[in-house]
């Protein structure tokens, strides 16, 4: 570092520097609070009684803790909604890893005629906003008898263009030698993929698992058009929207917020355990993809 730069760094007085540090951390903590506090308030409010919520919707600590909001949800079959959400998310996630893995592998490693056209067609579909396919998706599901059925919730989501590009990108960054060695030892393409390539692509697989699970767990628009009458097949977000009901009615806030918490907590736990991968995943899929 040059003398000029040293002087520049050293010039503000120590007192001013300390004040600045305190102010900066204060601002950062305040910002963190604005991102976290709404969840905190929703969590404690879900344990309040309705009269208390109506009298004071701002206080953080309930004067009387109650689980009546949760009890009301259980009466509404929330267990089934929770199971549906989890079941669908798990199947969608597993199939995404396998199908997007296979497709990404083929596009990056296997030379086959037409691969470029397939790649471009898939790339093109990413330009199409999901809302454009809302109505025609409903038409196709109706034709196939998949309305009001698990198949309608699951099958259309079993592979995504995003997943394919994530996997393709990662395979391309991997050295090809290990797979070639396996091939020379007589392993088939499929063996090589499942036994060698997919395990080596673990970071990309983890990212894909997280995004597929999150996407499915939080999805609202797709279940909304698939489930028209069969409330047994509601997912958590769909059930919550149903519980919210019409505009202008008296809302049972403790139950609604309890539902929001049941929807948020599983993702929050997954996030806290796999934080690192969320952030790495976005950088794979986002900037480089």
């Amino acid at each position: 570092m040059s003398a000029g730069a040293m002087a520049k760094v050293g010039s503000p007085s120590p007192v001013w520097r300390r004040v600045r540090t305190v102010l900066s951390y204060g601002l950062l903590i305040l910002l963190a609070l604005t991102f976290i506090y709404p969840f905190l308030l929703a969590l404690t409010t879900s344990f309040k009684t309705l009269p208390e919520i109506n009298a004071d919707p701002v206080g953080l600590i309930p004067s009387m803790w109650t689980t009546e909001g949760y009890a009301r949800l259980i009466g509404l079959n929330v267990g089934r909604w929770f199971f549906n959400s989890a079941f669908i998310a798990v199947i969608v996630t597993v199939s995404n890893v396998i199908f997007a893995g296979l497709a990404g592998y083929a596009l990056s490693r296997i030379k086959f005629p037409g691969s470029n056209a397939v790649f471009l067609a898939l790339l093109g579909t990413m330009m199409i906003p999901g809302i454009v396919l809302l109505i025609p998706m409903f038409m196709v599901l109706r034709l196939l008898g998949m309305v009001d059925a698990y198949t309608g919730l699951i099958v259309p989501k079993m592979v995504t263009a995003f997943g394919i590009f994530l996997m393709k990108q990662f395979f391309e960054s991997m050295p090809v030698e290990i797979e070639e060695a396996a091939r020379i030892d007589g392993a088939s393409r499929l063996d090589t993929f499942f036994r060698v390539a997919l395990p080596l692509a673990q970071p990309a697989v983890i990212a894909l698992v997280i995004f597929s699970f999150q996407g499915s767990w939080n999805d609202f628009m797709h279940p909304l058009i698939v489930i028209t009458t069969n409330t047994e097949l509601y997912t958590l977000p769909l059930g919550l929207a149903f519980l919210r009901g019409g505009i202008g009615q008296n809302l049972q806030w403790n139950a609604l917020l309890a539902g929001s918490m049941l929807t948020t907590l599983p993702m929050a736990l997954i996030f806290l355990f796999f934080q690192r991968y969320f952030i790495e995943g976005i950088s794979y899929g986002g900037v480089k993809g």
Binding site: P38, F39, P237, L240, A241, S260, T263, A268
Partner: peptide, 15 residues
């Protein structure tokens, strides 16, 4: 700062 981004849009809308 990232936390709200992982949450369901329906849950956040209700909150």
């Amino acid at each position: 700062y990232y936390f709200p981004a992982i949450t369901s849009s329906v849950a956040i809308s209700l909150i």
